[in-house]
């Protein structure tokens, strides 16, 4: 049985243009039914009579807040707990110990860029909390940012369905870090205190968020237009401290330009930002580069022309 689409066809193209202009993402092959389903839910929630009324309002009045909500609804991703086990293992076994050595005594700041409904930042916070058994007295904070959306609101509440908590979350972590509330499971306060969620336009200036030792941006870069990719990567490069790193998805394509990062051959999807050398290190490096004679210099003698024996 075919389903009847309710949205006027011209609105599809308009929504695609809006998404590209506002957040730099190509909706591409997203099926009209998916667009309709997501926007119909938003229309109901926002109190509109139907989907077309929502879109009429959007394009006739040009409400930027509504535009963000529409685009966020269109881009909402289905995320899991521990969405990339290899990335988390590399973080726990290699990246975190290195950062602790390179930034002794500092609170390590981790950013989940485009965190959607929050499973990724909570997964990293759980991992970091477990690592305290190996590295006691370490301090960290995890921040998740995304466009304002119902998904981000849910991340802040830390409330997940029976299905969501069972995708990727080991049962021991579920009972250690969550409480059962009726049919749902809610993140315990102890874990929620480790994670902060913020509404943020991902293409805007990221500087106000401060500097981070690790930025996690998984499976998102390829969705952006070429121009937006450059903007995103430059923005991320500006907020990663020298010596920190960017974690892309282990299946993500490598960015075409380096943006000041160095791809790590032994760590899939990890890009380190080289630590700036201190004055002492620069001096030591310069000293090492000077070739010093180990024997007394040979006195200069004008070169004499010697006959060449051609025999």
């Amino acid at each position: 049985m075919s389903r009847v689409l309710s949205l006027r066809p011209s609105y599809y193209e308009a929504l695609k243009r809006l998404t590209l202009e506002l957040v730099g993402i190509n909706l591409g092959a997203n099926h009209p039914f998916l667009i309709e389903t997501r926007l119909a839910t938003l229309a109901r929630k926002e109190g509109f009579e139907d989907l077309n009324t929502l879109i009429d309002e959007l394009f006739s009045r040009g409400q930027s807040r509504l535009a963000i909500k529409v685009v966020s609804a269109l881009l909402e991703r289905d995320t899991h707990f521990n969405p990339d086990p290899l990335a988390i293992r590399q973080f726990a076994e290699t990246i975190y110990p290195k950062l602790l050595g390179d930034f002794p005594g500092e609170t390590l700041r981790i950013l989940s860029f485009g965190c959607s409904s929050g499973q990724e930042p909570y997964s990293f916070a759980i991992q970091l909390n477990k690592l305290r058994q190996i590295y006691p007295n370490t301090r960290f904070d995890v921040t998740g940012i995304d466009y304002p959306s119902p998904a981000l609101d849910r991340a802040g509440r830390g409330q997940y369905t029976h299905f969501e908590v069972q995708r990727g979350l080991p049962i021991r972590d579920l009972i250690s870090y969550f409480d059962r509330h009726g049919e749902d499971w809610v993140v315990k306060q102890e874990l929620r205190n480790m994670v902060t969620f913020k509404e943020h336009h991902l293409l805007s200036n990221l500087g106000e968020l401060g500097q981070f030792h690790v930025v996690i941006f998984r499976n998102g870069l390829s969705d952006y237009s070429s121009a937006a990719q450059v903007r995103v990567m430059r923005g991320l490069s500006s907020i990663v401290v020298a010596g920190g790193c960017l974690i892309l998805g282990t299946d993500d394509e490598t960015p075409k330009l380096s943006y000041g990062f160095e791809e790590q051959a032994n760590l899939k999807g990890v890009f380190m930002k080289p630590k700036k050398a201190t004055e002492d290190e620069i001096q030591a490096d310069a000293e090492n580069r000077i070739v010093r004679p180990t024997v007394a210099p040979i006195p200069y003698e004008p070169q004499r022309k010697t006959p060449v024996n051609r025999g």
Partner: peptide
């Protein structure tokens, strides 16, 4: 868990949940 279960799935479940637990 104390009796020796490795993982625990709450019904209803789907293939995503089973594959996630097996993984």
């Amino acid at each position: 868990i104390e009796a020796g279960a490795n993982e625990y799935v709450m019904k209803p479940f789907d293939s995503d949940i089973i594959s996630s637990k097996f993984f």
